[in-house]
């Protein structure tokens, strides 16, 4: 078992509880021993960073410091693209400059905490490919997602900016989702929206543009004949799944019915966990094209 300091994020325990639940079911099968960081705070989701950098860096520095206290943990892991991006941004500043790190640690010292530069904090998607490995993942599959056509949807915060996220020739992290889908036995659908913005950050600010973004990507995936999308970001899930009925209206696509799966759900299905246990009944768009409710992965039914 690999011991991991695990940051679930806020939304995965709020509006998308099925994500956190699915992760907890999948982890032991993948050999991950998750030590949950219950004392960590919201990463600021990019919004707090636009308000005050030092504030968000201190909050994230505190969570990093808590993760570094987890005895024998090999790294820190999150299940939210937005958490990953917000935390990577804080880490970039904290690691780059000793004086700045000192300022932040001075605040944290009041609680007996200190962040030591160089934490390894990875999204579950990166862990799947870099730490567990695609071969191992493949070997664990009991219900291959045969004939299931899956469109990847990353979420901006996990694909850009490439330098901050250490996306490079050695770790081409913006190409991992298709590899994982294939390892699980599924078919990858290539469509225009996979690396684009779901629109969620501006849903309260420019609703029309936000819904148009979600609706366009969902429609592109539909036209490329995807059965479903998979995303490592619960905020993308909110705009793509929860808002899908209104997003469909915004782009005039009344035929839209595109289930959106959280990454641990897709992995869980292939590892033989039942859709219900994975919380797939909790989505606004019912994943009828992915599973039938006799709890079989449609793709895995022999011909």
């Amino acid at each position: 078992m690999t011991k991991v300091a695990y940051w679930p994020g806020c939304v995965s325990r709020g509006f998308t509880p099925e994500l956190h639940g699915a992760m907890n079911l999948v982890a032991p099968k993948l050999g991950l021993d998750l030590v949950q960081l219950n004392r960590g705070s919201c990463t600021g989701a990019g919004v707090l960073a636009e308000h005050n950098q030092e504030l968000v860096d201190t909050l994230n520095g505190r969570t990093f410091a808590l993760a570094q206290q987890v005895d024998q943990a090999e790294f820190m892991m999150n299940i939210c693209s937005t958490c990953q991006g917000a935390m990577s941004e804080s880490q970039e500043r904290l690691d780059a400059n000793k004086e700045y790190r000192h300022d932040v640690n001075h605040t944290l010292a009041q609680f007996g905490l200190s962040y030591e530069k160089g934490i390894v904090n990875k999204n579950f998607l990166w862990v799947l490919v870099e730490d567990i490995g695609l071969d191992k993942l493949k070997s664990l599959v009991t219900n291959p997602l045969t004939n299931l056509k899956v469109g990847p949807f990353y979420g901006c915060y996990i694909v850009r900016p490439v330098e901050r996220l250490h996306i490079n020739d050695e770790n081409p992290r913006d190409t991992y989702l298709p590899k994982v889908i294939e390892a699980l036995g599924g078919t990858v659908i290539d469509y225009a929206g996979s690396h684009k913005c779901c629109g969620f950050p501006i849903i309260t600010m420019n609703k029309e543009a936000s819904l148009k973004q979600a609706g366009t990507h969902l429609t592109d995936a539909q036209e490329a004949s995807a059965d479903c999308l998979v995303t490592p970001c619960p905020l993308c899930h909110l705009n793509l799944d929860m808002q899908q009925p209104v997003a469909a209206k915004a782009v005039g696509n009344m035929e839209l019915h595109m289930p959106v799966l959280h990454l641990p759900q897709l992995v869980g299905l292939a590892l033989g966990i039942s859709p219900k246990e994975l919380g797939m009944n909790k989505h606004v768009v019912r994943p009828t094209s992915v599973i039938d409710w006799s709890e079989t992965v449609i793709g895995s039914i022999p011909a």
Partner: peptide, 17 residues
């Protein structure tokens, strides 16, 4: 520190949870 290489492990031996 070179920010563009993956930093070292977080593992801190002997620390308390």
């Amino acid at each position: 520190g070179d920010p563009h290489t993956e930093p070292v492990s977080t593992d801190k031996e002997g620390a308390t949870a």
